[in-house]
Nucleic acid binder design. Structure first.
Lengths: 219, 219
DNA sequence: ATATTTTTTTGATTTAAATCAATGATATTT
DNA sequence: AAATATCATTGATTTAAATCAAAAAAATAT
């Protein structure tokens, strides 16, 4: 039942039963395969989405066709609220990278029925500040930090990812080329800041790595 | 009177008199000189600001000391709401580039008294989506577009600015060096896409300039 | 186990923009 | 008007990272 799912979504937790019923009327649950797109950059928004399962990658495309990863979302996330609220085209593309399900809400009807509710608004504020944090992090890593610092940061924050993803996937996630990733890793190895055995990475010199991650030090 | 100013701020327009009184209690109006800083990047937030007069530049600083301009704000703008709401350090520095005044609101008290009001929340949502638009525009121009495209875009959108600001100020605004600005302008001149007489710029070939502004064409 | 495909690494080259340095123009002050 | 300071342009060099190309290593299929 849609309604049972809705109760688990923070945005709607507090809503009384009749409001939930209304919400159910204006939304539906949809399944998405890996690679399927929730919405494209530039598209006119009609629906609000709540990611219930799976994983979504949000990216922008340059004229040259390069995809710039902005963020990834896991469940439960509100997606598309900015474009809908502002009535502007989606600023980026949202694509499932792990198959999942989403609640698809007709925004126009949502606006009419729910946008006067202080608690829904509060949740919306939370979701929007979350987007701001995400954009901020993106700017910090892409504009403020060098490729080297970004790699160091990833190593400090979640080096397990190197055991899960292929290098070319990590590179894409960091918006760098696999060649650059490879070169930086081998420089880190040569300088005994990390050690690599198979897929596993060991951090030998966390202080230096930390400095590199802040662009306070070059290798 | 502070209260009269408050009535002119969209965020508070709808508030009843007694609420405005309360707001007056928890806030004060302050004047700022050109160059004065409202808050620094990394600082713990305590106040919410509403820019009533003047102009503010928001920028991030890299480790190398390069200042990256994110946005500029004119009156009336709500500033600092994200950091306060999320209780995270200010993500950027806000500096007056034109002297002005700001309403300084104690956020803790604001939260207690106003954050349950649906209309205030709605305005907050509006302000936050505005920030998202601004960050988006920043990403679009800095990460997605080349220096050349950014200059072309500025020429199309507000070439008057070349009559007001010095080239090094425009360059700083675009996060490029004056040398790059100079070189791109002279290339545009050489290709008869623009003509420059004194401080004034005339656009001779808007179509080409438009293509350049989207990185669809190189010069 | 060998062959094939995919991924990673290495090396050489290119690129866009910054930096460095010097010169040329414009403003401002004296 | 001359002197000085500020700003803009030009040329040469550097830089970080991308690109191109090929080899090496690892994973997968036969």
């Amino acid at each position: 039942m849609v309604i049972d799912e809705l109760k688990n979504v923070y945005l709607f937790k507090h809503l009384p039963e009749e409001k939930l019923k209304k919400l159910e009327e204006i939304s539906k649950i949809k399944n998405y395969e890996r690679g399927q797109v929730l919405f494209f950059e530039g598209e006119k928004p009609e629906n609000l989405y709540i990611l219930l399962e799976g994983k979504i990658r949000v990216y922008k495309t340059t004229f040259k066709g390069i995809e710039i990863n902005i963020n990834q979302f896991g469940p439960v996330s509100l997606i598309g609220e900015y474009a809908n609220f502002e009535k502007v085209p989606y600023p980026a593309t949202a694509e499932f990278i792990v198959e999942g399900t989403a609640l698809v809400i007709n925004y126009k009807k949502f606006e009419e029925n729910f946008l006067k509710d202080a608690e829904v608004l509060f949740s919306l504020v939370k979701s929007l500040t979350n987007k701001i944090r995400m954009l901020n992090r993106f700017i910090e890593s892409t504009v403020v930090l060098s490729a080297e610092a970004r790699i160091a940061k990833l190593l400090l924050e979640s080096k397990e990812i190197f055991e899960i993803l292929k290098h070319y996937q990590i590179a894409s996630f960091l918006n760098i080329t696999p060649e650059t990733l490879s070169r930086v890793l081998s420089r880190l190895k040569k300088n005994k800041i990390i050690a690599v055995s198979g897929r596993e990475i060991k951090i030998l010199d966390p202080e230096k790595l930390n400095k590199i991650s802040k662009d306070e030090m070059l290798i």
